[in-house]
Amino acid sequence: MTVARRLVSTGVAASLLLAAGCDRDAAPQTRIVADGDPGHGRQLIAEVACGVCHIIPGVRGAAGTVGPSLAGFAERNLIAGVLPNTPSELARWVRDAPSLVPETAMPPMPLSEDEAVNVAAYLLTLR
């Protein structure tokens, strides 16, 4: 089966090269407002599937309408109309919204503190 393995790894390498050049959803790198890694944040958003409730530009399949669209979120002044939209407040919000706004419908999400910082960093690239 070594031939198969080699074919597969060549395939992987080739398609990585391919993919590297055509990722048009890539997180904009020009203005990073917050600490954290927006690219990783975007990946986490896809993994925990925030998109069941939100429209999130740049995240495939994120078309939910249970909560507000997060398009242009970096320009937003307030989070949920209540908290100032700073990187640290936003990181707390995406991890545990009910601790900040008890009446919210948004559940606590399975993100560590560091992961939440990355998720916030991605949302703050959305202009």
Binding site: V48, A49, V52, A63, G64, V66, E103, A105, M106, P110
Partner: peptide, 30 residues
């Protein structure tokens, strides 16, 4: 996770249109 469970309950018909579960879109957030 709690997010996808809540999202599914609120909007199953948007996630999987035609599935045999209605969207429960009249529930309050809490």
């Amino acid at each position: 996770n709690q997010g996808t469970l809540a999202g599914w309950i609120a909007d199953a018909q948007a996630i999987k249109p035609g599935a045999r579960m209605p969207s429960f879109d009249r529930l309050a957030g809490p």
